[in-house]
Design a protein around this nucleic acid. Structure first.
Lengths: 175, 175
DNA sequence: GAAAGATTGTTGTTGACGACAACAATTGAT
DNA sequence: ATCAATTGTTGTCGTCAACAACAATCTTTC
């Protein structure tokens, strides 16, 4: 019953010992133990499951690493895109990041409240706003990027430096 | 104005032309960045962003592929774990899948309504339930697995067969 | 054996998030 | 001038993770 220890990073045997399709002889786990040696069996080999777990971990680490500045991943991505492409419209930013323009409204509201970005009325199109970082936003983003780089190092520590780069290469088509 | 050109230039593309890590010469942004080598699209190189986009795509494809049986990824994972390890408690399933036990309650409610799983009172612990698949649940899960395999082929078609396997290998520590 | 503490299932709330629908203002096309 | 499309905005709905609290039930400790 000392199995209370949560999933303690069995990173040693990474790929091994997954091959046991019907080894459910030890089936009468009488519920008292809540054992952690539960075979995922069929779930291993599903990309969606492992990606979900990874995304959860990576977001939590991002939020934790940038907790001091109170910036969440989506906010960071918005500021990054605006910083790299000043003057973009909300529609362009939303399309670029794959988020709804309806959602971007609140995102920008919060960022504008904190004086990180500003919606400047476009001169050519009175419907749209040209998004810019404020001076405060630029210096803030610089700090965010340093923290984000630290978070990225956490990722590298977790899955390995070259594995991280492989991952970025594999999923580059979703950028 | 140059703003509109920037928007129209970048808005459309969702893929293509990512291979320029440090070719940021043509970037006329006035933002003095933090010395970090973040290129034109600073989000390239962030694992969290690309994983989020990928997870979104993969979940949508899963839901679409299993739309005829009305099963979502989380429901599928729950049924898979129960099917592979009959008699687990809710706590054990929740811990194994990394979901809150509070959330699992509603998950199991819906699955029990459809007569896929059943909560059998544990004989040894009157607090907990032993989770089992019903006969209907077993045959249903077999069909779900076939559809999930089809979804997995979609993933392979999207990112490449060997890339998918690499991905599973890299992220195996999150299983 | 009884009190204290921990666990299990449950209910509820909060907030982030994606999807969708509608709307006013504005722009572009016919 | 008229009609369709776009942009920002507001709103709702459903999913999901994270917490907090609770009653019932073990488990531990004295």
């Amino acid at each position: 019953m000392a199995i209370k220890q949560q999933t303690s990073r069995k990173a040693a045997g990474t790929g091994a010992a997954i091959r046991r399709p019907q080894t459910r002889a030890a089936n009468d786990r009488t519920l008292g133990d809540a054992g952690d040696d539960i075979g995922l069996d069929a779930l291993v080999g599903h990309a969606g499951y492992v990606v979900r777990r990874f995304q959860l971990w990576i977001f939590q680490d991002f939020v934790k690493t940038l907790a001091t500045v109170d910036i969440r991943p989506t906010q960071y991505s918005v500021m990054t895109v605006i910083g790299a492409n000043p003057g973009l419209s909300q529609m362009a930013v939303a399309k670029r990041l794959g988020i709804e323009r309806a959602r971007l409204v609140h995102l920008l509201d919060s960022l504008e409240e904190r004086a990180f970005v500003s919606r400047i009325p476009s001169a050519t199109d009175r419907r749209s706003h040209a998004l810019h970082l404020t001076g405060r936003g630029k210096t803030a983003l610089a700090q965010f990027k340093r923290l984000a780089a630290e978070h990225e190092r956490h990722v590298a520590d977790k899955i390995g430096k070259e594995n991280r780069e492989q991952l970025l290469r594999i999923l580059a088509c979703f950028t």
